[in-house]
Amino acid sequence: MTPGRTAAARAADAPTLVMAAHGTRSTHGEEVLAGLRDLVHRARPGHRVELAYLEISAPKLEEVLPALGGPVVVVPMLLAGGYHVHIDLPGIVARTRPDAVVARPLGPHALLTGLLARRLDRAGLRATDAVILGAAGSSDPGALADVRAAARLLSVRLSRPVTAAFASAGAPALPEALDRLRSGPAPRVAVASYLLAPGFFQTRLEESGADLVSASSAPTPTSRAWSGPATTRPSPPRRVPPCASRSDPALIRPARDRSRRTPPAPEPRAGSRGGVRRRRGSGGAGQVSLPVSRRRR
């Protein structure tokens, strides 16, 4: 079997990745999610990648799954648990594609923490700003606990307190958290968006009255990741945002400084073996001769 046919056979046996998003009435949000699907596809050439929605948007997950052949892996494009992760999505899979494998939701995760920190840095976060992690909210206590866990991870990354607040269900509500932090010593309050794409809840965060609101997590058409597939050539060293830490996967090791030269070896001391010897000349002045070897006994 030729190597080309081997690669084709492996691609045929690879499971189809189905990105299961919540759904949105925002056309811009749908475009961002479609671009995220394209980025994943370019990162895994030869593998089929599909985008489906649980509600509102099309195509629906219950329509996509039965039409796929071969193994299928469903990834919940959600940043926390809740009704859709624990009840809605598993029910759709059980009815339409019971052999499919369902992955865990995207968050909370350390990689998301690094992304949130970089989003805040690009938005202009200052060292004196108070920070809120703004999420949509849920009636599921487990989903709220996931958001608070993400806030603790971000707090460690930023080395400052981070308050989890919610735009809909959940306590504290975003306006309440803003009022409490404005009464404190911080001159500004920044909101880190714990949302995947633009839409209704991102707009609510931006209209909350916070001094700074970061962009949602997924790359937008103006971001660097949108421009095309990653090259196989190594990237040049870049400046890491101040809020990043050494554990950040995006941290790039700086290039070796080749301008440093090996320091010259120290000169041997006079009179030592293998060193220089002084002999008396006719004029009585000490003259330096070449190193001499040890005399044979």
Rank of each mutant, 00 (worst) to 15 (best):
T113V: 12
T6R: 15
L36M: 15
P242W: 14
R25Q: 12
A11L: 10
R104T: 07
R180V: 15
A14E: 14
R297C: 07
T128F: 00
P264W: 04
P221V: 07
S139Q: 08
K60P: 01
R273K: 09
T203L: 11
P221E: 08
L78A: 02
W226Q: 06
P15E: 08
D121V: 06
G286R: 11
V102P: 03
V288M: 03
R42L: 13
A143L: 07
A14M: 08
P76G: 07
A165C: 06
V147F: 06
V147C: 10
R10W: 11
V191M: 08
V73K: 06
A218Y: 12
G4L: 15
G274R: 05
A52H: 05
M77E: 05
R10I: 13
A130E: 00
A94Q: 12
G170T: 01
L290G: 11
A123G: 07
S214V: 08
P236A: 13
R37W: 06
V93I: 15
V49E: 03
A177F: 01
R10Y: 04
K60S: 14
G114A: 11
R37S: 02
T24I: 01
D248V: 03
V156L: 13
I87K: 15
R48H: 11
A173C: 02
D38P: 02
H86N: 13
G29S: 06
P15C: 08
P264F: 06
E206N: 11
R48M: 04
S217T: 15
A270Q: 12
A8R: 12
L111Y: 14
V288T: 10
T24R: 02
A117K: 00
L112G: 04
G199S: 05
F200G: 03
D88S: 08
A150F: 05
Q287R: 15
R10E: 14
R258A: 14
T203V: 10
R152N: 11
A9N: 09
F201Y: 15
E176K: 08
A34E: 14
P198R: 10
A8C: 02
R37N: 01
G137A: 03
L174H: 09
G209N: 09
L116C: 09
